[in-house]
Amino acid sequence: MTKVATREAYGQALAEIGEEIKEIVVLDADLSGSTKTAIFAKKYPERFFNMGIAEQNLMSTAAGFATCGKIPFASTFAIFATGRAFEQVRNSICYPQLNVKIAATHAGLTVGEDGATHQSIEDLAIMRALPNMTVINPADGVEAKKAVKAAALHKGPVYLRFGRMAVETIFDEDYDFQIGKGEILKEGTDVAIIATGIMVGEALKAAKLLEHDGVNAMVVNIHTLKPIDEEIILKAAECGAIVTAEEHTIIGGLGSAVAEVLAEKKPTPMRKVGIKDQFGQSGKPDELLKLYNLTAEDIVKAAKEMK
């Protein structure tokens, strides 16, 4: 099975859609080799701007572009996009509902060796809290590409979360991606695993492991954390038990979003697989996922706790 990092897919998608969507301009804070906007920059140098290591100006300049009929993609690492420049994103992009796409890479623990300062584990919570913001966290390269195109065509602010590490491809090229729509990847009746981003692959593995033990698990992919697909969450709740899985703190991310829906509409026993209110650290991505209990085995364990 092919492995592609979602940031790689992002860079390729930008360069592809840049051909047909001429309004796209790309701004980056001196990380274009890492965020993969360099692919676009090479193809369309006149539509690419390296803003320097200056993330506040990155976001505000993008906002300025948006008022001039452009579709700016502003890219840097997730930690800087949502942390350093938070208030520019809030007040100069979300509040006036400007058509800016914040495409952040190197999200989550799987940044790896760079360690805690560069591992954004709270970006989904921060972005989800902003009115007018659409929040998308793709699971693989195919979904990432489709998400980039959908975001470019969507009017309004969008946060796109991409990872550094290559991940297995889950979706076929003909997969129909729609902002705000989750999908059931595997039907099941005993427990539902709702996952986002790179944890979708782990959720599918977990379902297989559970099957060996006679547990029939449903697997749901939630790529859009906001607006969240309530309908599919309520359908998953019919299994009577839910496990959420995300490469993000369990505070304010997918687990919280699902709990918010269930608490009001269909209280259901649930467990959250995610980072347990702590910072990351340096290490290899796979070692970190194990250490922080973000593997298929951890999902299986959480599912069995409710049986």
Partner: peptide, 25 residues
């Protein structure tokens, strides 16, 4: 009103976007 403002230090960076877009276009 060309921009929603209030938080200090946003205007000049926003202006960079407008000025850069003018040059580009």
């Amino acid at each position: 009103v060309e921009f929603s403002t209030g938080s200090l230090g946003h205007g000049l960076p926003l202006g960079c976007g407008l000025a850069l877009a003018a040059k580009m276009q």
